[in-house]
């Protein structure tokens, strides 16, 4: 029951190739050089790159423009992330049509973090649709050429629809039931938040199989740019479980000599993680998140012993 492929990401998944995706974050600037440079770095190693949409509710540049530009300037397919936090259904329709016009092939449908956790917490949150409602809307636009009110779209957009998942959700069952619902509504692929051990990936995939969900899953993996970032996440983000051994190895590396050893330890740890996940689960690929140090992604992939997804 594989989905029709509208872009390279879905095409490679359908061909049964193990795929990698990357992630880039346009920030509070009008300068997109870094994002395009990041896309160039990732280009030969991943099949597509997600462009985040005001992540953790920080007011950044609109994600559609960089999604378009990395395709045009760097030649990398984009996964345009869209949250329902900042747009009502009218604005969603507008942006989806615009994305279609600009040749975007993948949309990741998200609810989005709440406005109050971001850098503009006074904002009025929208949440006119939730992510399930958004998947429903997208599917209708793509397959039937209709909007939510059954108004006809002249030339309907063609995308593959992605959804996010929380592999470490506790309790896990409601999360799996939610994924199941969005799959039934028409999600083509799933990208997860990050895991830090093979076991976390295994547990999640086991639950997915129990519910007979066949939709391809890309497990999220996020190396640590710095020890500070790791410490912060361990301390302040409940639900993120970084095994103690990983924490220790990274701390030790930092003590031994600062940045370089930390990067090397990252490559080692996450390379092993990728290898382990591939070996012991049936995931379709890995979604890598290394914002601001994209150069480490090819190293990790290589360390895991993969030829790159385009290779």
């Amino acid at each position: 029951m594989s989905s029709e492929a509208y872009g390279e990401l879905m095409k490679q998944i359908n061909q049964g190739r193990f795929v990698f995706t990357g992630e880039l974050e346009p920030v509070k600037t009008t300068n997109l050089e870094e994002v395009i440079e990041g896309a160039r770095t990732l280009k030969d190693h991943v099949v597509a790159v997600n462009i985040t949409d005001n992540p953790t509710a920080f007011g950044y540049m609109n994600a559609l423009v960089p999604s378009y530009l990395i395709q045009r300037e760097a030649g990398v397919e984009a996964v345009y992330q869209m949250t329902t936090r900042d747009r009502n259904r009218l604005a969603l329709i507008s942006d989806v049509l615009a994305a279609g016009a600009l040749g975007i092939k993948n949309i990741l449908a998200l609810t989005g973090d709440h406005t109050t956790v971001g850098d503009t917490p006074q904002a009025k949150p929208v949440f006119d649709l939730d992510s399930a409602g958004f998947v429903y809307m997208l599917k209708k636009m793509v397959d039937e050429g209709l909007d939510l009110n059954n108004n006809k779209i002249e030339e309907p957009p063609k995308f593959n629809i992605g959804i996010a998942a929380a592999p470490n959700a506790n309790p896990l069952e409601p999360e799996i039931l939610k994924i199941e619902r969005k799959v039934k509504l028409g999600a083509d692929f799933i990208q997860t938040q990050c895991v830090y051990s093979v076991e976390q990936a295994e547990n999640f995939m086991e639950a997915i199989e129990t519910y007979s969900i066949k939709t391809p899953i890309l497990i999220g993996v996020a190396p640590f740019k710095s020890i500070g970032m790791m410490e912060w996440m361990v301390k302040f983000v409940p639900g993120i479980k970084v095994p103690k051994e990983i924490q220790d190895v990274l701390r030790k590396a930092k003590k031994a000599g600062g940045k370089e050893p930390v990067y090397e330890a990252n490559t080692e740890i996450f390379g092993e993680l990728l290898k382990g996940i591939r070996k012991s689960t049936k995931v379709a690929g890995i979604h890598t998140m290394a914002i601001g140090f994209e150069w480490i992604v090819p190293k990790i992939i290589e360390r895991a012993g993969f030829r790159t997804s385009k290779g």
Partner: peptide, 11 residues
């Protein structure tokens, strides 16, 4: 907090 109809969210 998000008035979701098909929750829970990832948060």
């Amino acid at each position: 907090a998000k008035s979701l109809l098909n929750g829970p969210c990832g948060g």
